[in-house]
Design a protein around this nucleic acid. Structure first.
Lengths: 221, 221
DNA sequence: CAGCCTCTGTGACTAGGTCACAGACCACTC
DNA sequence: GAGTGGTCTGTGACCTAGTCACAGAGGCTG
């Protein structure tokens, strides 16, 4: 059996020993999920360790008042550490994972996962790295929520999302969910940015007119 | 070599195979740190995997304006997952770990750690569990910071700290650090609780007069 | 007792979250 | 082209939380 092409999507797995890659390839299945699928969440847990080949998964929390906050995204080439924690089932948690795009993932059954962890240093490193990165990331999220001003966080987010084109296709509500705040707050801040000539807004979209001004605010102490 | 008494402090390690427990015991060192020691933090990383035999370690973040927030505590019988993430060094993070009491810990050198992970399912489970619990915990912290009212969070914390005696030896400043808010906010809320007859306060201490009332507020939606 | 440090209380102000509601924009149908 | 319903945005009023400045109170030490 030759390695299917998905394995090349994971830089961390290139160095897998053949005796290890064999079972991995044989027992794991490629699954496809349409955009919008709730992959895990309260009352819905996966039965396998998932590694993303294609697409992105958004992990978020929802409050009982309906406010949302995006904790992080898992993108192609990464494993979903949360699924692992979920798999182990040591404690309940109520975040949810949602396919943002059509998603292609490799599902590794629990038995194979345990076996690979036991036998392959490369695979262990791959899994542990994912865990570490997640924890690090959550630390940053906590720091921002707890200590950063909302205008600074919004400016950061706009710069991040604007990319090269400076065009962002998101509603105020979606931006609010990214930052864990209310839609009205985003609307007011965007108005202020627009008043200063930093952005232009239209229904469901934002264009960055002066990204460098946003960047400067984003870097504020 | 017989097992030293520290190993009995870790329920997760009782079932270790002798061939695994041997190297663990031989190469690891018991270290003692006085209360207040900064175990890790910006510019100070540990060189070994740490498991706490005695005492507690507080992991917290400090903002540039001086506000603090306690993320979690590691207590006796637990391993410091953060140290692991730190060890792996895949990314920087700037939380700090501080010995709250005098601490006795077992330091496992990196090589032994890797070896144990490779050879012992029990040890792997021990380490992964610590990771999972931490991630779960951080999720809860984020949810509370992002979505919960401060009076509810304070009531929860008071009930949690009050224990059976209902007596708490903390200053307003220390409570503020627990919850990641400002001292004045705590002072005002405590005044309000006292006005309602739920608590009595004195310099550096709080007594719960009606814990059930606090519990009810803490359980608020 | 005086001096000093820590802890607590308070008013004024700003930022952020909630609520209610009014328009504006868009797609679709008739 | 007019009507209709759904989504998106704007706004005022109000409340909670965080910041700043400063005043006392409590407790310890020389």
């Amino acid at each position: 059996m030759t390695a299917p092409d998905w394995i090349s999507a994971f830089p961390g797995l290139k160095t897998l020993e053949p005796s290890v890659a064999g079972p991995l390839i044989e027992t794991s299945k490629v699954v496809r999920l349409p955009a919008g699928t709730k992959i895990f969440g309260p009352g819905q847990a996966p039965e396998a360790y998932l590694m993303l080949v294609e697409g992105t998964v958004r992990v978020q929390q929802v409050s009982d008042t309906g406010r949302e906050i995006v904790l992080y995204r898992v993108s192609a080439g990464e494993s979903c550490a949360l699924t692992t924690a979920c798999l182990m089932g040591y404690e309940e948690y109520q975040a949810e994972g949602i396919a943002e795009t059509d998603v292609e993932a490799v599902a590794i059954p629990r038995g194979t996962f345990d076996d690979l962890i036991a036998r392959s240093a490369a695979f262990r490193k791959f899994v542990f790295t994912a865990f570490s990165i997640r924890i690090t990331n959550l630390f940053r999220v906590i720091e921002e929520i707890a200590f950063s001003r909302m205008d600074v966080r919004l400016a950061q987010k706009l710069v991040e999302l604007g990319g090269v084109s400076g065009h962002i296709d998101l509603t105020h509500q979606q931006l609010a969910a990214e930052l864990g705040t209310a839609r009205e707050v985003i609307s007011r801040l965007l108005n202020e940015f627009q008043r200063r000539g930093w952005i232009t807004t239209s229904r469901g979209a934002i264009d960055l007119a002066r990204p460098e001004a946003l960047r400067q605010l984003a870097a504020a102490p």
